[in-house]
Write a protein that binds this DNA or RNA. Structure first.
Lengths: 216, 216
DNA sequence: ACAAAGGCGGTAACAACGTTACCGAAGAAC
DNA sequence: GTTCTTCGGTAACGTTGTTACCGCCTTTGT
Protein backbone atom coordinates (compact mmCIF):
# COMPACT_ATOMS: atom_id res chain seq x y z
CA UNK A 1 0.00 0.00 0.00
CA UNK A 2 1.20 3.48 -0.78
CA UNK A 3 -0.02 6.39 1.29
CA UNK A 4 -0.85 9.75 -0.23
CA UNK A 5 2.37 11.06 1.24
CA UNK A 6 4.48 8.41 -0.48
CA UNK A 7 2.78 9.20 -3.76
CA UNK A 8 3.54 12.90 -3.31
CA UNK A 9 7.08 12.02 -2.36
CA UNK A 10 7.52 10.22 -5.68
CA UNK A 11 6.09 13.23 -7.51
CA UNK A 12 8.83 15.49 -6.17
CA UNK A 13 9.37 17.76 -3.21
CA UNK A 14 6.99 20.32 -4.64
CA UNK A 15 4.12 17.85 -4.36
CA UNK A 16 5.05 17.19 -0.74
CA UNK A 17 5.11 20.89 -0.09
CA UNK A 18 1.64 21.42 -1.50
CA UNK A 19 0.36 18.34 0.34
CA UNK A 20 1.52 19.85 3.61
CA UNK A 21 0.07 23.22 2.72
CA UNK A 22 -3.26 21.63 1.77
CA UNK A 23 -3.43 19.80 5.07
CA UNK A 24 -2.64 23.01 6.93
CA UNK A 25 -5.24 24.93 4.94
CA UNK A 26 -7.92 22.36 5.68
CA UNK A 27 -6.95 22.28 9.34
CA UNK A 28 -7.04 26.06 9.58
CA UNK A 29 -10.43 26.30 7.89
CA UNK A 30 -12.00 23.44 9.83
CA UNK A 31 -10.66 23.89 13.33
CA UNK A 32 -8.98 27.26 13.50
CA UNK A 33 -5.46 28.46 14.23
CA UNK A 34 -5.17 26.49 17.48
CA UNK A 35 -5.27 23.22 15.52
CA UNK A 36 -2.23 24.28 13.50
CA UNK A 37 0.37 22.16 15.28
CA UNK A 38 3.37 20.68 13.55
CA UNK A 39 2.52 17.22 14.83
CA UNK A 40 -1.10 17.40 13.72
CA UNK A 41 -0.23 18.56 10.23
CA UNK A 42 2.49 15.99 9.73
CA UNK A 43 0.16 13.35 11.10
CA UNK A 44 -2.57 14.27 8.62
CA UNK A 45 -0.12 14.24 5.76
CA UNK A 46 1.44 11.00 6.89
CA UNK A 47 5.01 12.19 7.26
CA UNK A 48 7.19 13.07 10.21
CA UNK A 49 7.54 16.52 11.72
CA UNK A 50 11.03 16.80 10.27
CA UNK A 51 9.70 17.25 6.75
CA UNK A 52 7.95 20.46 7.73
CA UNK A 53 11.23 21.82 9.03
CA UNK A 54 13.16 20.98 5.86
CA UNK A 55 10.36 22.34 3.64
CA UNK A 56 9.36 25.49 5.53
CA UNK A 57 12.12 26.00 8.07
CA UNK A 58 9.74 25.68 11.00
CA UNK A 59 6.19 26.44 11.97
CA UNK A 60 6.59 30.14 11.27
CA UNK A 61 7.57 29.44 7.70
CA UNK A 62 4.49 27.36 7.18
CA UNK A 63 2.28 30.01 8.75
CA UNK A 64 3.84 32.60 6.50
CA UNK A 65 2.88 30.47 3.52
CA UNK A 66 -0.68 30.37 4.89
CA UNK A 67 -0.49 34.14 5.34
CA UNK A 68 0.39 34.57 1.68
CA UNK A 69 -2.34 32.15 0.67
CA UNK A 70 -4.83 34.18 2.67
CA UNK A 71 -3.82 37.39 0.95
CA UNK A 72 -4.07 35.71 -2.42
CA UNK A 73 -7.62 34.58 -1.65
CA UNK A 74 -8.44 38.00 -0.23
CA UNK A 75 -7.12 39.68 -3.36
CA UNK A 76 -9.18 37.43 -5.61
CA UNK A 77 -12.30 38.09 -3.54
CA UNK A 78 -11.79 41.84 -3.84
CA UNK A 79 -11.06 41.62 -7.55
CA UNK A 80 -14.28 39.66 -8.05
CA UNK A 81 -16.39 42.50 -6.67
CA UNK A 82 -18.75 43.75 -9.42
CA UNK A 83 -17.18 46.76 -11.05
CA UNK A 84 -20.34 48.39 -12.38
CA UNK A 85 -20.36 51.74 -14.11
CA UNK A 86 -20.16 54.03 -11.11
CA UNK A 87 -16.94 54.14 -9.07
CA UNK A 88 -18.98 54.75 -5.93
CA UNK A 89 -20.96 51.58 -6.58
CA UNK A 90 -17.70 49.78 -7.18
CA UNK A 91 -16.43 51.09 -3.89
CA UNK A 92 -19.56 49.86 -2.12
CA UNK A 93 -19.20 46.45 -3.74
CA UNK A 94 -15.59 46.35 -2.63
CA UNK A 95 -16.70 47.02 0.92
CA UNK A 96 -19.24 44.20 0.79
CA UNK A 97 -16.61 41.88 -0.68
CA UNK A 98 -14.23 42.85 2.11
CA UNK A 99 -16.71 41.97 4.82
CA UNK A 100 -17.92 38.86 3.00
CA UNK A 101 -14.40 37.51 2.75
CA UNK A 102 -13.61 38.15 6.39
CA UNK A 103 -16.80 36.36 7.44
CA UNK A 104 -16.31 33.51 4.97
CA UNK A 105 -12.73 32.79 5.99
CA UNK A 106 -12.36 34.29 9.44
CA UNK A 107 -9.35 32.17 10.33
CA UNK A 108 -7.39 33.47 7.37
CA UNK A 109 -8.43 36.98 8.23
CA UNK A 110 -7.29 36.53 11.82
CA UNK A 111 -3.92 35.23 10.70
CA UNK A 112 -3.52 38.14 8.32
CA UNK A 113 -4.62 41.02 10.52
CA UNK A 114 -4.80 39.83 14.10
CA UNK A 115 -1.85 37.79 15.30
CA UNK A 116 -3.85 34.56 15.58
CA UNK A 117 -0.82 32.27 15.59
CA UNK A 118 1.09 33.09 18.78
CA UNK A 119 4.69 33.25 17.65
CA UNK A 120 4.17 34.50 14.13
CA UNK A 121 4.80 38.07 13.01
CA UNK A 122 4.97 38.68 9.25
CA UNK A 123 8.20 40.16 7.98
CA UNK A 124 8.56 43.76 6.77
CA UNK A 125 8.15 42.78 3.13
CA UNK A 126 4.85 41.23 4.11
CA UNK A 127 3.40 44.63 4.94
CA UNK A 128 4.20 45.73 1.43
CA UNK A 129 2.31 42.73 0.13
CA UNK A 130 -0.73 43.60 2.23
CA UNK A 131 -0.74 47.11 0.84
CA UNK A 132 -0.42 45.71 -2.64
CA UNK A 133 -3.58 43.69 -2.10
CA UNK A 134 -5.35 46.87 -1.07
CA UNK A 135 -4.06 48.71 -4.14
CA UNK A 136 -7.31 47.97 -5.93
CA UNK A 137 -9.06 50.07 -3.29
CA UNK A 138 -6.72 52.99 -3.94
CA UNK A 139 -7.53 52.70 -7.63
CA UNK A 140 -11.26 52.91 -7.06
CA UNK A 141 -10.86 55.90 -4.77
CA UNK A 142 -8.78 57.55 -7.46
CA UNK A 143 -11.63 57.07 -9.91
CA UNK A 144 -14.02 58.59 -7.42
CA UNK A 145 -11.77 61.63 -7.09
CA UNK A 146 -11.37 61.94 -10.83
CA UNK A 147 -15.12 61.61 -11.34
CA UNK A 148 -15.60 64.45 -8.92
CA UNK A 149 -17.75 62.56 -6.44
CA UNK A 150 -14.94 62.88 -3.93
CA UNK A 151 -14.19 66.54 -3.82
CA UNK A 152 -10.55 66.51 -2.78
CA UNK A 153 -7.88 64.58 -0.97
CA UNK A 154 -5.06 62.18 -1.51
CA UNK A 155 -6.50 58.89 -2.81
CA UNK A 156 -4.06 56.72 -0.86
CA UNK A 157 -5.01 58.43 2.38
CA UNK A 158 -8.73 58.20 1.68
CA UNK A 159 -8.36 54.55 0.77
CA UNK A 160 -6.51 53.92 4.02
CA UNK A 161 -9.40 55.35 6.00
CA UNK A 162 -11.83 53.06 4.17
CA UNK A 163 -9.52 50.18 4.99
CA UNK A 164 -9.35 51.17 8.65
CA UNK A 165 -13.12 51.47 8.84
CA UNK A 166 -13.77 48.15 7.14
CA UNK A 167 -11.17 46.41 9.25
CA UNK A 168 -12.53 47.81 12.48
CA UNK A 169 -16.04 46.78 11.53
CA UNK A 170 -15.25 43.17 10.65
CA UNK A 171 -12.75 42.86 13.48
CA UNK A 172 -15.36 43.73 16.08
CA UNK A 173 -17.90 41.55 14.33
CA UNK A 174 -15.51 38.60 14.29
CA UNK A 175 -14.85 39.22 17.97
CA UNK A 176 -18.54 38.63 18.57
CA UNK A 177 -19.44 42.20 19.51
CA UNK A 178 -22.03 42.40 16.77
CA UNK A 179 -24.31 39.68 15.49
CA UNK A 180 -24.36 39.06 11.75
CA UNK A 181 -27.42 41.18 11.03
CA UNK A 182 -26.30 44.05 13.24
CA UNK A 183 -22.83 43.69 11.79
CA UNK A 184 -24.08 44.22 8.28
CA UNK A 185 -26.17 47.25 9.27
CA UNK A 186 -23.27 48.87 11.09
CA UNK A 187 -20.83 48.13 8.28
CA UNK A 188 -23.16 49.68 5.74
CA UNK A 189 -23.80 52.69 7.95
CA UNK A 190 -20.10 53.33 8.49
CA UNK A 191 -19.03 52.98 4.86
CA UNK A 192 -21.88 55.09 3.48
CA UNK A 193 -21.08 57.74 6.07
CA UNK A 194 -17.52 57.84 4.82
CA UNK A 195 -18.64 58.12 1.21
CA UNK A 196 -20.93 60.99 2.20
CA UNK A 197 -18.10 62.67 4.09
CA UNK A 198 -15.67 62.64 1.20
CA UNK A 199 -18.37 63.79 -1.17
CA UNK A 200 -19.09 66.87 0.89
CA UNK A 201 -15.62 67.70 2.05
CA UNK A 202 -15.12 71.39 2.59
CA UNK A 203 -12.43 72.92 0.42
CA UNK A 204 -9.28 73.94 2.30
CA UNK A 205 -10.61 77.52 2.02
CA UNK A 206 -10.70 79.93 4.96
CA UNK A 207 -11.43 79.37 8.63
CA UNK A 208 -11.39 75.87 10.12
CA UNK A 209 -7.96 76.31 11.70
CA UNK A 210 -8.15 72.79 13.13
CA UNK A 211 -6.61 73.97 16.35
CA UNK A 212 -7.64 70.87 18.26
CA UNK A 213 -5.32 68.59 16.40
CA UNK A 214 -2.15 68.43 18.39
CA UNK A 215 -3.34 68.88 21.89
CA UNK A 216 -3.53 65.95 24.36
CA UNK B 1 14.00 35.81 55.93
CA UNK B 2 10.46 36.31 54.75
CA UNK B 3 9.72 36.66 51.05
CA UNK B 4 7.16 39.09 49.70
CA UNK B 5 4.91 36.16 49.05
CA UNK B 6 5.02 34.97 52.65
CA UNK B 7 4.23 38.48 53.81
CA UNK B 8 1.24 38.64 51.48
CA UNK B 9 0.20 35.19 52.66
CA UNK B 10 0.06 36.47 56.22
CA UNK B 11 -1.99 39.45 55.10
CA UNK B 12 -4.73 37.19 53.76
CA UNK B 13 -5.66 35.55 50.51
CA UNK B 14 -6.70 38.88 49.06
CA UNK B 15 -3.14 40.15 49.33
CA UNK B 16 -1.88 37.04 47.59
CA UNK B 17 -4.40 37.55 44.85
CA UNK B 18 -3.32 41.12 44.21
CA UNK B 19 0.34 40.11 44.39
CA UNK B 20 -0.27 37.60 41.61
CA UNK B 21 -2.25 40.12 39.61
CA UNK B 22 0.46 42.73 40.02
CA UNK B 23 3.11 40.32 38.79
CA UNK B 24 0.95 39.41 35.81
CA UNK B 25 0.28 43.07 35.04
CA UNK B 26 3.96 43.90 35.14
CA UNK B 27 4.80 40.89 33.01
CA UNK B 28 2.14 41.80 30.47
CA UNK B 29 3.27 45.40 30.23
CA UNK B 30 6.99 44.59 30.08
CA UNK B 31 7.15 41.52 27.88
CA UNK B 32 3.76 41.07 26.29
CA UNK B 33 1.11 38.35 26.35
CA UNK B 34 3.58 35.59 25.43
CA UNK B 35 5.34 36.03 28.75
CA UNK B 36 2.12 35.35 30.63
CA UNK B 37 2.84 31.79 31.69
CA UNK B 38 1.64 30.26 34.91
CA UNK B 39 5.13 29.14 35.81
CA UNK B 40 6.65 32.54 35.14
CA UNK B 41 4.06 34.42 37.18
CA UNK B 42 4.23 32.04 40.11
CA UNK B 43 8.02 32.19 39.91
CA UNK B 44 8.00 35.99 40.06
CA UNK B 45 5.60 36.00 43.00
CA UNK B 46 7.52 33.28 44.79
CA UNK B 47 4.72 30.76 45.13
CA UNK B 48 3.90 27.52 43.37
CA UNK B 49 1.68 27.24 40.31
CA UNK B 50 -1.03 25.64 42.39
CA UNK B 51 -1.88 28.94 44.07
CA UNK B 52 -2.92 30.46 40.76
CA UNK B 53 -5.31 27.59 40.23
CA UNK B 54 -6.92 27.93 43.64
CA UNK B 55 -7.14 31.73 43.28
CA UNK B 56 -8.22 32.10 39.67
CA UNK B 57 -9.23 28.62 38.60
CA UNK B 58 -6.57 28.46 35.92
CA UNK B 59 -4.79 30.67 33.46
CA UNK B 60 -8.01 31.76 31.79
CA UNK B 61 -9.35 33.08 35.08
CA UNK B 62 -6.23 35.15 35.58
CA UNK B 63 -6.38 36.48 32.04
CA UNK B 64 -10.01 37.41 32.57
CA UNK B 65 -8.95 39.42 35.60
CA UNK B 66 -6.37 41.17 33.41
CA UNK B 67 -9.11 41.72 30.85
CA UNK B 68 -11.26 43.48 33.43
CA UNK B 69 -8.27 45.49 34.64
CA UNK B 70 -7.65 46.59 31.07
CA UNK B 71 -11.22 47.75 30.65
CA UNK B 72 -11.06 49.60 33.95
CA UNK B 73 -7.93 51.45 32.80
CA UNK B 74 -9.47 52.05 29.40
CA UNK B 75 -12.62 53.45 31.00
CA UNK B 76 -10.60 55.80 33.19
CA UNK B 77 -8.59 56.98 30.19
CA UNK B 78 -11.76 57.75 28.27
CA UNK B 79 -13.37 59.47 31.25
CA UNK B 80 -10.29 61.65 31.64
CA UNK B 81 -10.71 63.10 28.14
CA UNK B 82 -11.31 66.86 28.41
CA UNK B 83 -15.03 67.47 28.23
CA UNK B 84 -14.95 71.07 26.99
CA UNK B 85 -18.04 73.02 26.10
CA UNK B 86 -18.76 71.59 22.68
CA UNK B 87 -19.91 67.95 22.38
CA UNK B 88 -18.07 67.66 19.08
CA UNK B 89 -14.86 68.72 20.76
CA UNK B 90 -15.55 66.23 23.51
CA UNK B 91 -16.04 63.57 20.86
CA UNK B 92 -12.72 64.47 19.26
CA UNK B 93 -10.98 64.36 22.63
CA UNK B 94 -12.54 60.97 23.24
CA UNK B 95 -11.09 59.74 19.97
CA UNK B 96 -7.63 60.99 20.87
CA UNK B 97 -7.92 59.37 24.29
CA UNK B 98 -8.95 56.10 22.64
CA UNK B 99 -5.92 56.03 20.40
CA UNK B 100 -3.60 57.27 23.14
CA UNK B 101 -4.67 54.47 25.44
CA UNK B 102 -4.26 51.78 22.81
CA UNK B 103 -0.75 53.03 22.03
CA UNK B 104 0.18 53.47 25.67
CA UNK B 105 -0.94 50.00 26.74
CA UNK B 106 -1.02 47.96 23.54
CA UNK B 107 -0.82 44.63 25.35
CA UNK B 108 -3.95 45.37 27.32
CA UNK B 109 -5.66 46.50 24.15
CA UNK B 110 -4.67 43.32 22.38
CA UNK B 111 -6.02 41.18 25.18
CA UNK B 112 -9.27 43.12 25.18
CA UNK B 113 -9.97 43.32 21.47
CA UNK B 114 -7.70 40.92 19.66
CA UNK B 115 -7.44 37.46 21.17
CA UNK B 116 -3.82 37.91 22.22
CA UNK B 117 -3.83 35.08 24.76
CA UNK B 118 -4.35 31.89 22.76
CA UNK B 119 -6.93 29.97 24.75
CA UNK B 120 -8.83 32.88 26.22
CA UNK B 121 -12.24 34.04 25.03
CA UNK B 122 -14.13 36.43 27.31
CA UNK B 123 -17.50 35.23 28.48
CA UNK B 124 -20.80 36.64 27.21
CA UNK B 125 -21.17 38.97 30.19
CA UNK B 126 -17.79 40.36 29.25
CA UNK B 127 -19.19 41.80 26.03
CA UNK B 128 -21.75 43.66 28.10
CA UNK B 129 -18.92 45.11 30.16
CA UNK B 130 -17.09 46.25 27.05
CA UNK B 131 -20.20 48.04 25.81
CA UNK B 132 -20.60 49.60 29.23
CA UNK B 133 -17.13 51.09 28.95
CA UNK B 134 -18.10 52.57 25.61
CA UNK B 135 -21.32 53.98 27.07
CA UNK B 136 -19.58 57.32 27.58
CA UNK B 137 -19.20 57.48 23.81
CA UNK B 138 -22.91 56.90 23.31
CA UNK B 139 -23.62 59.72 25.74
CA UNK B 140 -21.46 62.18 23.85
CA UNK B 141 -23.07 61.23 20.54
CA UNK B 142 -26.46 61.77 22.16
CA UNK B 143 -25.38 65.27 23.11
CA UNK B 144 -24.26 65.90 19.55
CA UNK B 145 -27.66 64.81 18.28
CA UNK B 146 -29.48 66.92 20.84
CA UNK B 147 -27.31 69.92 20.01
CA UNK B 148 -28.27 69.51 16.39
CA UNK B 149 -24.73 69.05 15.04
CA UNK B 150 -25.66 65.49 14.15
CA UNK B 151 -28.76 65.80 12.04
CA UNK B 152 -30.39 62.46 12.70
CA UNK B 153 -29.78 58.85 13.63
CA UNK B 154 -29.80 56.50 16.55
CA UNK B 155 -27.01 57.54 18.95
CA UNK B 156 -26.06 53.97 19.84
CA UNK B 157 -25.62 53.10 16.17
CA UNK B 158 -23.60 56.23 15.45
CA UNK B 159 -21.44 55.58 18.48
CA UNK B 160 -20.83 52.03 17.28
CA UNK B 161 -19.53 53.31 13.96
CA UNK B 162 -17.13 55.66 15.76
CA UNK B 163 -16.01 52.71 17.82
CA UNK B 164 -15.49 50.56 14.73
CA UNK B 165 -13.52 53.31 13.03
CA UNK B 166 -11.32 53.99 16.04
CA UNK B 167 -10.72 50.32 16.61
CA UNK B 168 -9.81 49.67 13.00
CA UNK B 169 -7.41 52.59 13.01
CA UNK B 170 -5.52 51.63 16.14
CA UNK B 171 -5.65 47.93 15.29
CA UNK B 172 -3.87 48.49 11.99
CA UNK B 173 -1.47 50.90 13.63
CA UNK B 174 -0.64 48.39 16.37
CA UNK B 175 -0.12 45.77 13.67
CA UNK B 176 2.60 47.98 12.27
CA UNK B 177 0.81 48.97 9.09
CA UNK B 178 1.12 52.66 9.91
CA UNK B 179 3.93 54.43 11.64
CA UNK B 180 3.05 56.65 14.59
CA UNK B 181 2.95 59.90 12.65
CA UNK B 182 1.00 58.43 9.76
CA UNK B 183 -1.23 56.68 12.27
CA UNK B 184 -2.18 59.92 13.91
CA UNK B 185 -2.90 61.63 10.58
CA UNK B 186 -5.07 58.76 9.38
CA UNK B 187 -6.90 58.53 12.67
CA UNK B 188 -7.69 62.21 12.61
CA UNK B 189 -8.75 62.09 8.98
CA UNK B 190 -11.10 59.18 9.57
CA UNK B 191 -12.77 60.54 12.69
CA UNK B 192 -13.25 64.03 11.30
CA UNK B 193 -14.72 62.53 8.15
CA UNK B 194 -17.27 60.70 10.27
CA UNK B 195 -18.16 63.83 12.19
CA UNK B 196 -18.64 65.64 8.87
CA UNK B 197 -20.78 62.80 7.56
CA UNK B 198 -23.19 62.80 10.45
CA UNK B 199 -23.40 66.56 10.38
CA UNK B 200 -24.52 66.59 6.76
CA UNK B 201 -26.66 63.47 6.75
CA UNK B 202 -29.47 63.71 4.24
CA UNK B 203 -32.92 63.51 5.74
CA UNK B 204 -34.80 60.30 4.91
CA UNK B 205 -36.68 62.39 2.33
CA UNK B 206 -37.31 61.32 -1.26
CA UNK B 207 -35.13 59.47 -3.73
CA UNK B 208 -31.99 57.60 -2.59
CA UNK B 209 -33.68 54.19 -2.63
CA UNK B 210 -30.48 52.54 -1.46
CA UNK B 211 -31.06 49.67 -3.80
CA UNK B 212 -27.52 48.38 -3.55
CA UNK B 213 -27.85 47.30 0.02
CA UNK B 214 -28.87 43.68 -0.07
CA UNK B 215 -27.27 42.44 -3.21
CA UNK B 216 -24.10 40.35 -3.14
C1' DA C 1 30.48 0.24 -12.52
C1' DC C 2 31.83 0.94 -7.91
C1' DA C 3 33.00 3.74 -3.96
C1' DA C 4 32.56 8.05 -1.56
C1' DA C 5 29.79 11.80 -0.17
C1' DG C 6 26.06 14.41 0.60
C1' DG C 7 21.34 15.31 1.92
C1' DC C 8 16.77 13.92 3.21
C1' DG C 9 13.70 11.98 6.68
C1' DG C 10 12.22 8.96 10.74
C1' DT C 11 13.03 8.26 15.75
C1' DA C 12 13.53 9.93 19.95
C1' DA C 13 14.79 13.19 22.85
C1' DC C 14 14.72 18.17 25.18
C1' DA C 15 12.77 22.29 27.24
C1' DA C 16 8.66 24.70 28.23
C1' DC C 17 3.74 24.92 28.50
C1' DG C 18 -1.08 24.21 31.17
C1' DT C 19 -2.93 21.21 34.35
C1' DT C 20 -3.61 17.92 38.14
C1' DA C 21 -2.95 13.77 41.40
C1' DC C 22 -0.88 13.13 45.64
C1' DC C 23 0.17 14.27 50.19
C1' DG C 24 1.74 16.83 54.23
C1' DA C 25 0.61 20.62 57.13
C1' DA C 26 -2.17 23.94 59.26
C1' DG C 27 -6.25 25.69 60.89
C1' DA C 28 -11.53 25.01 62.05
C1' DA C 29 -15.23 22.57 64.32
C1' DC C 30 -17.18 20.17 67.91
C1' DG D 1 -8.06 17.09 72.10
C1' DT D 2 -9.45 14.86 68.18
C1' DT D 3 -11.18 14.97 63.65
C1' DC D 4 -11.97 17.03 59.37
C1' DT D 5 -11.47 20.14 55.83
C1' DT D 6 -8.88 23.09 53.07
C1' DC D 7 -4.83 25.01 51.13
C1' DG D 8 -0.31 24.71 48.94
C1' DG D 9 4.21 22.42 47.45
C1' DT D 10 6.12 18.56 44.75
C1' DA D 11 6.19 15.99 41.01
C1' DA D 12 4.15 14.10 37.38
C1' DC D 13 1.27 13.82 32.70
C1' DG D 14 0.20 15.13 28.13
C1' DT D 15 0.92 18.82 25.04
C1' DT D 16 3.68 22.03 22.20
C1' DG D 17 7.98 23.57 18.94
C1' DT D 18 12.45 22.11 17.92
C1' DT D 19 16.63 19.38 17.11
C1' DA D 20 20.50 15.79 17.70
C1' DC D 21 21.37 11.43 15.94
C1' DC D 22 21.60 8.14 12.56
C1' DG D 23 20.30 5.24 8.92
C1' DC D 24 19.10 5.18 3.84
C1' DC D 25 18.90 6.78 -0.59
C1' DT D 26 20.60 9.55 -4.36
C1' DT D 27 24.14 11.61 -6.61
C1' DT D 28 28.72 12.37 -7.92
C1' DG D 29 33.67 11.35 -9.13
C1' DT D 30 36.71 8.52 -11.45
Amino acid sequence: MTTAYEKAQLAGQNAVRTAILDAAIRLLADEGPAALTVRRISGDVGCSTKVIYTMFGGKDGLVEALWREGFARFGRALAAAPRGDDPVKHLAALGRAYRAYALAEPNYYRIMFEAAVPGFRPGPEAYAESRETLAILVGVVEECVKAGVFTEGEPAAIADTFWMAAHGAVSLELAGIFGPEEGERRFHMLTTALVRAYGTQSRPGPAEPDQERNRQ
